[in-house]
């Protein structure tokens, strides 16, 4: 369902653009790295070797080693699996209810819209950071509540964009005319609403995944949710940051992975100029 919403045009026979192919290839490569990487890279991501502290890239360690002398290749592979997986789940848990509720609110209006608006407003009015920190207090040292807390705040973004945009579309004269002419709501949804909101939602979804990973990294920076030695892309950045002057490329490796992920998603989500 969500993929349908996120990129409906993928399902329709449309000329395959080069951009999309690059995006898809990028995502496939990342998925392979995250899924197969931990399995192919034999090194233990938690194994320390002080004599290899901050080993350079391309030497004995393919992607270098962090300050503890742990293989960065192994850590990136394991980290990609954990972070991408969790970010994807978070995005889905936020996007599915967000978009569905947004559509429902715009479509039905009335008390449903009113209730949903109130709910969204209350969630927004509560500092999201507080929600995450509080959830975490119940299950310290777990990534689960961290991501769940993020999804709790992220869905509102999807909901609001969907509701506002859909409401605007539904009030356009030709849609109102189509309704009067007796076209079914399914038809209107498919031919008018979805094509308009899809690119917005896809853009949001791509960024939401990045937001999730970056949020974890932000929380790690204030020592929340740290769980050594688990390799997680966001907390890896925090761990490596103090060494920015000596090993700048090492620090940038996890952000590069995040960059490739968001780029791939953006390229796929890109609306073509037809």
């Amino acid at each position: 369902m969500s993929t349908e919403i996120a990129s409906p045009s993928l399902l329709r026979p449309s000329p395959v653009s080069v951009t999309r192919v690059i995006g898809a290839a990028l995502l496939l490569a990342l998925a392979a790295f995250a899924v197969l990487g931990p399995w192919l890279v034999q090194a233990d991501p938690a194994k320390q070797d002080f004599s290899a502290s901050l080993a350079p890239i391309g030497g004995e360690y393919l992607l270098g080693a962090d300050h503890y002398g742990r293989s960065l290749l192994a850590r990136l592979a394991h980290g990609a699996r954990l972070s991408f997986g969790m970010a994807f789940l978070t995005m889905l848990t936020a996007a599915i209810p967000g978009v569905l509720l947004g559509l429902a609110a715009a479509w039905r209006g009335g008390w449903l819209e009113w209730t949903l608006e109130l709910l969204a407003n209350i969630v927004l009015a509560l500092p999201g950071l507080m929600l995450v920190l509080l959830l975490l207090a119940f299950a310290p040292g777990n990534f689960g509540p961290l991501y769940f807390g993020l999804a709790l705040t992220l869905w509102v973004e999807f909901y609001r964009i969907t509701r506002t945009t859909t409401a605007t579309i539904l009030k356009q004269p030709h849609i109102e005319a189509a309704k009067l002419l007796g076209f079914g709501s399914g038809y209107i949804l498919r031919s008018y609403v979805l094509p308009s909101i899809a690119p917005l939602i896809a853009t949001l979804a791509a960024f939401a995944m990045a937001t999730a990973i970056i949020a974890i990294s932000t929380l790690s920076a204030i020592s929340v949710g740290l769980q050594p030695p688990t390799p997680e892309l966001g907390s890896m950045i925090v761990e490596l940051l103090p060494y920015y002057a000596e090993a700048p490329v090492h620090v940038l490796l996890p952000p590069i992975l995040i960059f490739l992920l968001v780029l791939g998603l953006q390229l796929i989500a890109q609306k073509d100029s037809r």
Binding site: A46, K47, Q48, Y68, L226, P228
Partner: peptide, 10 residues
């Protein structure tokens, strides 16, 4: 926390 991480591995 970094020292704890090192102790853990040792």
């Amino acid at each position: 926390p970094p020292i704890a991480t090192a102790l853990q591995a040792q």
